[in-house]
Each structure stands twice: as C-alpha cells, then as structure tokens.
Design a protein around this nucleic acid. Sequence first.
DNA 1: AACACCATGTAAGCAGTTACATGATTAG
DNA 2: CTAATCATGTAACTGCTTACATGGTGTT
Lengths: 189, 189
Amino acid sequence: MALRNAVMAALLEGEASGYDLAKAFDASVANFWMATPQQLYRELERMAAEGLITARVVEQDKRPNKRLFSLTEAGRAAVHAYTTERPSRPSAIRDELLVKVQTLDAGDATAVRAGIADRVDLARTKLARYERLRTALLDGRTEEQYLVGAERVGPYLTLLRGMDFERENVRWGELALRVLDGRAAQRCG
Amino acid sequence: MALRNAVMAALLEGEASGYDLAKAFDASVANFWMATPQQLYRELERMAAEGLITARVVEQDKRPNKRLFSLTEAGRAAVHAYTTERPSRPSAIRDELLVKVQTLDAGDATAVRAGIADRVDLARTKLARYERLRTALLDGRTEEQYLVGAERVGPYLTLLRGMDFERENVRWGELALRVLDGRAAQRCG
DNA sequence: AACACCATGTAAGCAGTTACATGATTAG
DNA sequence: CTAATCATGTAACTGCTTACATGGTGTT
C-alpha cells in the first residue's frame, strides 16, 4: 500500500509509462524508494483499476506502443490524504555490504575491502548524477533563492537528502579502507 | 537468504534467544538491517534445521523457558563464505517520510513538517544510544587506538556508519524545517 | 487495575524477487 | 555481429507484515 504513494509522487512530475517510471525510480527517487519494473507494472494495473490513475495509449512506429499514466482527481486527493497520515512508519534499510562489514573479522577482510571500494565508486557516480539533477532544478538560481521562491521544494529537499547520504558513503568508505589497509600493513610488516 | 547472514552476524557476539535478537536488531544492527520478531523466529527455525545454529533450552523460574541459539562450525563457515561473495546487492531503502516530503507541495505541508520534526527527535535519540554503545566499545581507548589495535573492527565501523546516518538526519531535518517555516511565514506575512 | 515485559509462536495476506518471453531498433 | 534500448508482461516463488494468542511477572 506504500509503493503506490511513491508512484503517485513520481506522477506529480507528469504522465509516464511503466518503463519511464522504472528509470525514474532508478534515478531520482532511488535514494528513498526502490522498486523493480515488475512491481511497477503490477501496481500501475491496480491503481488504474481503482481509479487513481488513467492510462492513455500512445502508438509509436519503430517502437512498441506505450501506455502513459497520469493522476486522476482521485489520485491527487489520495496524495493529499497520504501526506496528512501520522506517523510515517520508520524507514527500513537493508544493506548487505554492512552485514559483511559487521562480520569482517570472522570472514575474508580482503573481499570485504573490495566491496567497500565498489561502494565508494558507486556513491561517487550517484553523487555526480544528483549534482547534475540539482543544477537542472536550480536553473541558474542560488539554493537560497530556490528554497524561498520556487513553487515546489519537495523534490529538491529529497534530492539534498540523497546527496548527503552518498557523500557520507564516500566519507565513511574511505575511512574504512584506510583502517583496513592500516591493519593489513601492521600484520605483514 | 540474506536475513540469515544478518542473524549470524548478530550471533557472532555470542548466543542469543529470538527475543534477544529482536532487541539487538532494534538497537545495534538496526542501522543497516531491519527485522520483525516473527521473521527472526521463522528464520531461526530454518537455520537450526540446516545445521547453521544449535539451540540450547534454558529453563527459568518466574520466566518462560527460552532457547539460546549459537553458531555451529557450519555456521561460521557460512559467515566466511558470505563475506567472499561479490558483488553485494545494492542497499535498499524505503522511507515513507521522504515520499511525503517529495509530494509536500501537493499535500499538507503542516503535517509533513510535523513528521520531519518527529524524525529529527528520533534521530537524536538513536544518536545518543549509538554514542553510549561507542563509548562502551572503546572502553577508555581513543578511536585511533581502537581501530589499530582491537581484535574486531567490523561492529565499530558499522556503528560509525549508523551514527553518520543519524547525524545527517538531524542536519537535513533541521534545514527542511527552516525552509518550510520560512515559506509559511512568507505566505502569511 | 492497567500496563509493559518476557518469550514464544500460528495464520493469513500482501509485497517483492527472479527468471523468462517477445520483438523490433539502434549503437559500438 | 553483439549488445543495449524500448516497452510490456506472465508465472512461480520467496520474503515480510499484521493480527492474534498464551500466560506469568513486575511496575505505576
């Protein structure tokens, strides 16, 4: 019942196909909600059946047809109702890498080290993408100007949270790498 | 198949009952893995059936009996094997509050504001708990001494990551509150 | 007297993952 | 020539959540 709110959040940006949403979830919304394409297609069916969204088939040549979904009035009302709900259930995280880090001392420290290095690289990549998204949103304005004057601040605030998160991934990952390298050198030297 | 690795990570600290694990997951491991008691009881059954852990029944008076689980040799081997697996699947987050923040401009900004304030309070509470855990782990040593000399660094590194995360929650939340208050004042004044 | 804690579990239902399938188009 | 992109979906499975049940003990 909560994926649908994430979908409606994405549809506030305008109509989109299941495929579009899969990409959007992978890019901008990914820092607070993950969903596979299959989940999205199923949820879109249900939402359409319940009248929260409507589909518009667009025929394309040299491309498969697509169904563009957009929010109905009932959908917008549902979004508004959702924002008034209290409390939000606590955020859920599942991070396999941190499970491995936790067990590092009873496992293969070299392999875990490599996993941390991968994570740092990934965080840097995401950070660069978010930075481009931020520049596009700001569109020449400063952050202060934007936060005071823009019609919508929600997407900008969530983007800032995502950027903070990835920055911390880089910072923490580099610390962890230094620590592991220091201990490895100590054991060998 | 991944919850069990989190369980084994927790059992590296020593034998524990399902009830103990539920508390531990809520406290120290919560920053990278969430699990309900029901999930744990079910997974413990399976793991015992597969020989990764063994149960020891402890009879108590004035308290219900409990089953204390501990890792077997096969369990330790499984932990080691898990740390060598590459890659780790990307970390999954689901944060309802951020979905609401995303849709804030089409919803009830006052209610979302209250949700952010709750989140900041919760983050402060968690941060204080993690700080106590950290002090207990350090046990008089400085962080540098600990990271170089301690037998195990995994749990300390994951704790640092959790603390960073909660600190960012506080920092970001306070910024978001300032922004929303500024915009509200602007509309009224 | 009411509530929270200890300690375990069942049952039902919803959510999420994985593998597979289609079939044309464009980029390297 | 291979791989990736576009665009959708089915089927089978595994995992997770919610509600409920038990029953004694300690706390306010």
